[in-house]
Write a protein that binds this DNA or RNA. Structure first.
Length: 108
DNA sequence: AGACTGACTGGGA
DNA sequence: GTCCCAGCCAGTC
């Protein structure tokens, strides 16, 4: 029941638990499009002001806050992540692989 | 209507 | 280990 791929992306992002982060590629792979990571980013951009979807928990594979510019303020993304207990230094999530959330493994 | 770009990733050289 | 290329979907020019 996939009306739009965007809806699926939002569903997955909403499933990301607090204090955790996810990468575009993982979400894209979860949806079946391994190379559709760019679509995930595109979907996030479509959200813009939608806080229903924790887009701040979605970062690139390197753990960098590549999409921070899409938030109201470039620091809003980092602020929210820090509120959840994550450590952000120079727009990069520390211990990213430790807080990385894999829907394919944890959401079985 | 055709082509390019974009919050990305993986593989090959 | 680092750099370059190809692929994905949707929106915009």
């Amino acid at each position: 029941m996939k009306e739009n791929k965007f809806e699926d992306i939002y569903e997955v992002v909403k499933l990301i638990p607090s204090g955790r982060a996810c990468s575009y590629g993982i979400i894209a792979e979860f949806l079946g499009s391994k190379r559709g990571a760019r679509l995930v980013g595109w979907a996030m951009n479509a959200l813009q002001n939608r806080i229903d979807v924790p887009a701040h928990r979605v970062v690139n594979r390197n753990g960098f806050l590549s999409g921070k510019a899409a938030f109201e303020t470039p620091t809003s993304m980092q602020e929210r992540l820090e509120e959840e207990g994550l450590i952000i230094i120079e727009d990069q999530i520390q211990d990213f692989e430790k807080i990385l959330w894999n829907p394919n493994k944890e959401l079985i």
